[in-house]
Amino acid sequence: MRLIVSFAQGFVSILKGMAITFLNLVGRRKITLQYPYQRPNVSPRWRGIFYLPYNDEAGRINCVGCTLCAQACPTGVITMTKMGAGKHASVNAFTMDLGRCMFCNLCIEACPFDAIHMSTRFELASVDRGVSLLTIDKLAQGGADAVERTKRTIEAALEQEAAAKAAAAAAKAQAAAGAQAAEGADA
């Protein structure tokens, strides 16, 4: 008797399970995403491929080449060479080796100038290792053009600064000369 009861119970629960699968068969939205044709909407916080935002007003990328991001990176992904100096500084090479990157967000948090971001691009697979080496031309928002413009902006600014400095120096020299002359005249 116990055998029959337990058998009946088992039978009923198998039927219940079959009812659940049947409901899923007819009643549920299918969740497959036909990937190459449909792409998922990823969150705006998605930690995808990097970019260096370009600042249109200032005519340059924000990065000042302070290397804080490179220092924060646990795996040494970021290398850069600085250009310019002082207030007018940027990078003329900024390379990220994505093959080592963990997409951990530490570099982004480290940057005090909001100069490096992660985009929502998630299709990073490639058949060529070279692709994962991101140079500044690929990283900068606006590509090589933006880099070129940054360079021009920085150079112009530097020239301006140098000119201003020279002018200031000349003025100072003049003043000094004037003072000397006055002194001389005094003497």
């Binding site: 990823v42 969150s43 916080r45 998605w46 930690r47 997409f103 951990c104 967000n105 992660m118």
Partner: peptide, 14 residues
């Protein structure tokens, strides 16, 4: 999806 909305990553959230 929820974790992704919060942290930006699905598996290695950090």
């Amino acid at each position: 999806d929820l974790l992704e909305a919060y942290t930006g990553a699905r598996l290695t959230c950090n």
